[in-house]
């Protein structure tokens, strides 16, 4: 039985959670609310994170374009997704929300521009 210790981040109370699997059920100890229970369970079974980074940009005053995932992606896919972004160069102009990479690393999330950049004058 592998127990996972974590700090809950759903509110500033910062409860210390212990989460483990027992007879096919996920048990959460230390949470003081239902949201905390759910957070513990999710972090144990399928932790997800937003991915924010930059990609190379051409034709603009800036050299990098800020990007964000359209939804959270599995934590274990973060490194792979980043590696995939490594090869990406985008040309200005770009508008916030433009899709830079669709379904990154098969995560179901798109990588989109998180800002608008006009073409250089």
């Amino acid at each position: 039985m592998l127990k996972k210790e974590m700090i809950c981040i759903v509110c500033p109370n910062s409860c210390r959670l212990s989460v483990w699997e027992e007879e096919g059920r996920i048990r959460v100890e230390g949470a003081s609310c239902a949201r905390g229970m759910a957070h513990g369970r999710n972090e144990f079974t399928h932790p997800v994170r937003m991915l924010t980074s930059t990609v190379r940009l051409e034709g603009a005053r800036h050299r990098r374009l800020a990007v964000i995932s359209s939804q959270e992606i599995p934590k274990e896919k973060i490194r792979e997704a980043l590696a995939a972004l490594e090869g990406v160069t985008v040309s200005a102009p770009v508008r916030k929300g433009d899709i830079i990479v669709r379904n990154i690393s098969g995560s179901g999330a798109d990588i989109v521009a998180s800002r608008t950049i006009p073409a250089a004058e």
Partner: peptide, 17 residues
């Protein structure tokens, strides 16, 4: 930092996220 090489054109998104 990371140099991109692929150079894909951005697709138009579904509006602001």
């Amino acid at each position: 930092n990371r140099r991109g090489t692929l150079n894909p054109q951005p697709e138009k998104g579904d509006g602001p996220v």
